[in-house]
Amino acid sequence: MSIKDKESEIVEEFAMFEDWDGKYEYLIDLGKDLPAISAEYKTDDYKIKGCQSQVWLHAELIGGRVRFTADSDAIITKGIIALLVRVFDDETPDAIAEADLQFINEIGLAQHLSPTRSNGLLSMIKQMKMYAIAFKVQNT
């Protein structure tokens, strides 16, 4: 499934909720279901600098596709990461580097995109793309 298709799927899922609490509860559930990151990657080296909640992100290239695992100590942040991992995981470095994510706006979580928000959503996306670019360079 392409990144665009996965985005559409998420937008459809969130469209089922009429009010904010449904959306957030779904996000919290996604956070809880996010596969755990290996303990060896839950260190400062893999931490994305955010102000309030800690986020750990690990990426590796397997068979030409980037595999992401991630975690956070805040559950809403973890839910947002779960969405990002779902969209970017198992995609090629090219596809990730070129992706222009739209779903965050469309599911009504745009407020989390503001650079002043301290959950570092923008930093997460940036970091995932950096990994993709690094793998791209490595492969050429």
Binding site: D21, Y24, Q52, A74
Partner: peptide, 22 residues
């Protein structure tokens, strides 16, 4: 058991402005 960031985010949705963090 809850992160202050999560609590603050839900309160914000309810129109309640508090500060969270250090």
């Amino acid at each position: 058991g809850l992160h202050p960031y999560d609590v603050g985010t839900i309160l914000d949705q309810l129109g309640i402005a508090v500060r969270t963090g250090h």
